[in-house]
Measured scan of single mutants.
Amino acid sequence: SKGEELFTGVVPILVELDGDVNGHKFSVSGEGEGDATYGKLTLKFICTTGKLPVPWPTLVTTLSYGVQCFSRYPDHMKQHDFFKSAMPEGYVQERTIFFKDDGNYKTRAEVKFEGDTLVNRIELKGIDFKEDGNILGHKLEYNYNSHNVYIMADKQKNGIKVNFKIRHNIEDGSVQLADHYQQNTPIGDGPVLLPDNHYLSTQSALSKDPNEKRDHMVLLEFVTAAGITHGMDELYK
């Protein structure tokens, strides 16, 4: 796709999030870079409003799984890469995230190029959380598991539907599940690639910047598309 050509090198990323969870309002600002050749993201996020009212790991899918245009699609799968094909005009990404036995996040993001920078601007609203639950009670460990993110075409809306389940580790050794339902639709009216069913395999590492006084998260992530085999004719070339 034409959009794919915008991702040949390292691309700067800007992320802006405004959130409200159970009436606790907050903002997060992030910057870093993405390299789609390797499916690599390096980002640093800062809570610009003081202390973040929710655990950082609960925002990873909104912040970095928010820029799935940096996923590495192998050559034989490039015609299934909706995310890059929607660029530079970008796409709207909407999600509902259900935390098992707790509340939910609803998010709406616009992901697009502004100049040479890929920008992810998000509004997040969280409701029905227990004040002493795993999320508002800050009981999650500061780490992140690997996940597969399942993608299918949504021809009606000229976009994709995505769903997956995140496993958050809790300090007591148990797990907090979070079910994600995602819809992506193009902002522009140019042609986009509608994929066959496949998935993104994601690995994320969270860390801290020892010199950063503000509440923050440093993230390194690798994302690769998989799940579609080479056609038989490919094998015999």
Rank of each mutant, 00 (worst) to 15 (best):
N104C: 15
Y236F: 12
Q156L: 10
S27N: 08
T185S: 11
D102G: 07
H198L: 02
Y236D: 14
D128Y: 12
A36V: 10
G133S: 10
H168Y: 06
K84T: 01
F164C: 15
F129C: 04
I160V: 15
K78Q: 12
D154G: 09
Y142D: 04
K139R: 13
G39S: 02
S174R: 13
E212K: 00
N120H: 02
F129V: 04
N169S: 09
E5R: 15
V92A: 07
D196E: 10
I97V: 12
F7V: 03
N163T: 15
K161E: 12
S27G: 08
P210S: 07
M217V: 03
A109G: 11
V67M: 14
F7C: 10
T202I: 15
E212V: 01
M152V: 14
N169I: 12
N158V: 03
L17R: 00
A153V: 04
G3S: 12
G3D: 06
H24R: 12
F129I: 07
D179E: 13
N148S: 07
I46S: 02
M217K: 01
A36T: 10
A36D: 03
I127A: 15
V92L: 06
I187V: 14
E94Q: 13
D101G: 09
L124R: 00
S207N: 06
P88H: 09
K213M: 11
A225T: 05
Y142S: 06
E5V: 04
D128E: 09
F45C: 09
K157R: 14
H138Y: 07
G190D: 07
K130E: 06
T224P: 01
Y38F: 15
G137W: 05
S29P: 00
D215N: 03
H76C: 08
F99I: 02
V54M: 06
Q79P: 06
D101Y: 05
K112M: 04
H216D: 00
I187T: 10
D128N: 09
S204F: 01
P210H: 05
G23D: 03
Q156P: 09
L219P: 00
I187L: 14
P57L: 02
Q203H: 15
K112T: 11
G19D: 00
I170S: 15
G190A: 03
E123A: 08
Y142C: 07
T202A: 06
L194Q: 08
K106A: 10
Y236N: 15
E141K: 08
D179Y: 09
N143Y: 09
D172N: 11
D196V: 11
P195A: 06
F222V: 11
T42N: 09
N158Y: 06
E234K: 07
I228F: 07
T96N: 11
R167H: 15
C47R: 01
N134H: 04
K40R: 12
V21I: 10
N120K: 03
S146R: 12
L194V: 06
S64A: 02
K208E: 05
Y91H: 01
P74S: 08
N184T: 07
K208N: 06
H216R: 00
D18A: 07
D233N: 05
N169T: 14
P195S: 04
F164L: 06
F99S: 01
L200H: 02
R167G: 15
N169K: 11
C69G: 03
H24L: 09
F113Y: 09
L194R: 07
R214H: 06
E110G: 04
K84E: 01
N158I: 05
G9R: 10
N143T: 12
I166L: 09
D128A: 08
D116N: 14
F70C: 06
T107I: 03
M87T: 03
Q79R: 13
E31K: 13
N145H: 12
S204P: 02
T224A: 11
V111A: 04
V28E: 00
E33V: 15
F26L: 01
M217L: 08
F45V: 08
H198R: 01
I160T: 07
V54E: 01
H76P: 05
K106R: 09
E131A: 11
A226D: 10
Y38H: 14
N163S: 08
T185A: 11
D154N: 12
D179G: 06
P191T: 09
L59P: 00
F45Y: 13
D18G: 08
R108G: 01
H147P: 01
L140P: 02
N143G: 15
V21E: 00
D81N: 04
D101N: 06
P186L: 05
N104D: 04
Y38C: 14
I187F: 08
M87I: 05
P195T: 05
I97L: 04
V175G: 09
F113I: 04
Y199N: 05
R95P: 00
A153T: 13
P12R: 05
F98I: 07
I46L: 07
E123V: 13
T48P: 02
H180N: 04
G115A: 03
E31V: 13
F26V: 06
F99C: 01
R108S: 04
E114V: 10
S27T: 13
S71G: 12
P53L: 03
T96A: 09
K208S: 09
Q79H: 12
K78T: 09
G32D: 00
N158D: 14
Y150F: 08
K161N: 13
G115C: 06
I127N: 14
H230L: 09
P74H: 15
D35H: 12
K25G: 02
D215G: 01
Y105C: 02
S174C: 13
L43R: 00
D35N: 08
I122F: 00
V218A: 03
V175L: 09
K100M: 06
S85F: 07
I228M: 14
N104S: 12
M232L: 10
C47S: 06
M232V: 14
D20A: 09
H80Q: 10
D196Y: 05
K155I: 05
D132G: 10
F70L: 05
G39D: 00
V67L: 08
T117S: 07
K139Q: 09
H180L: 03
F45S: 02
E131V: 10
R72H: 09
M77V: 05
M232T: 13
N184Y: 01
L194P: 05
G227R: 14
N169D: 15
T96S: 10
L220Q: 13
K2R: 13
